[in-house]
Design a protein around this nucleic acid. Structure first.
Lengths: 219, 219
DNA sequence: TAGATTGTTAATCGATTAACAATC
DNA sequence: TAGATTGTTAATCGATTAACAATC
């Protein structure tokens, strides 16, 4: 019988962890050494109890009456997320969005390091984007196995997304960070995390619509 | 006594609506005229009952035994989200990410049209990005009032995010689509929707970590 | 009519919030 | 000790899922 080590941590909790890290790092830079859950909560407009629940879900403990050790907490959360050791990744698709992603330094803090780009467009192959070389997509398999890369950042045009994903899987890619709007179909065991820009935009739009309606009523 | 017109639609529902639109549009292009909730669900790996609940939350009704009229459903959802009439927006910050956003055609389907960029970098001002002109940030107030723009897409470096937001509010901006990692502080009534790339990456990381651990155990 | 599918009402599940004893 | 803060257990809230009558 396998012991289930822990009820898996709720996704909402996982999604909040990076924002905690952000607050903690800022605090650390300012020289703070202890934080309370209520401080973190205040910074992020959350409730202290939620912060405590989230933190405890990852398995850290604080000190009653004192709070959490900032440095230790950062280390713990990063470990929990797997952000403590950097994952190298390949970028597939070096168009507008791809260029932005490959040049974005911020991912380093999240343990993601895009080390090269791939494209089918001959005019891009061999060029450098933000100091990173663009290879012919045909070389993907070769480089995946040689460099032991698991993660692909997918930023191709929607039409090509599914084909590119299939091909990448055949090359040995294990996880996709999918920036296309396409729902990828992948074999069991392959991880896909889609960045839903439209979801976010939908929330914005509907809130704005409500707001504008409310203002109209007032007048 | 004010009649509360409707319990506000749950955010998870709003976030799923764009994916329904995607399926519907694809279907429409193929000439389909009716869909069932179970078809949509199948395409997106959801449950039919959830699709029905979501749709009914927006106020559409289908036909028992038949399904939903595709064209009508598209129109309805777009209306619900406010995607039926395009919102013009300004981009603030024309770096890597900004350049990608200003050039991304896909937002048009979501009712967002970025019509110009703004930056403080003199070397960018006056240049065109994807056919759109970059203005000096100082001109923002002038152009916001002249063109009646409500929305700013914020893609400046983190350090400058809060200042830029304050300035934009003073210029008349009502809603921010915030691509920076910063928690913006804004006056009451100003809308901020943050795109949490790190949240998404956190989910990917933790899933990958689990997966790799599971594989290790098996071997 | 028979089969398919909606939409409502109720049941379940999971996440958030509250209360409070334990502890530094 | 007094004040602050954690972490657990229980209560509440909201979203998802199930069941099924209504209807095309």
């Amino acid at each position: 019988m396998t012991k289930k080590i822990s009820k898996s941590v709720p996704q909402p909790t996982i999604r909040r962890l990076p924002s905690y890290l952000q607050v903690l790092n800022e605090l650390k830079n300012k020289g703070g050494s202890y934080v309370s859950s209520s401080f973190i909560a205040g910074q992020l407009q959350l409730e202290a109890i939620q912060v405590r629940k989230d933190l405890s879900a990852t398995g850290v403990t604080g000190q009653a009456g004192v709070g959490f050790d900032v440095a230790e907490l950062i280390k713990h959360i990063e470990e929990f997320l797997g952000w403590d050791n950097t994952h190298d990744a390949f970028l597939i698709g070096c168009g507008n969005l791809g260029a932005a992603l490959i040049g974005y330094e911020g991912f380093k803090d999240s343990g993601l390091n895009i080390i090269a780009g791939f494209d089918v467009d001959k005019s891009k192959i061999g060029k450098m984007f933000a100091g990173k070389l663009v290879f012919d997509l045909e070389k993907l398999g070769n480089l995946v196995s040689r460099m032991h890369i698991n993660i692909a950042v997918l930023a191709v045009p929607p039409r090509q997304a599914q084909d590119a994903a299939c091909y990448a899987v055949s090359c040995g890619i294990k996880a996709f960070w999918n920036f296309t709007p396409v729902q990828l179909e992948v074999p069991e065991g392959i991880i896909v995390e889609r960045v839903g820009l439209e979801s976010s935009l939908a929330v914005l739009s509907s809130r704005l619509k409500e707001q504008l309606k409310a203002e109209k009523v007032k007048r």
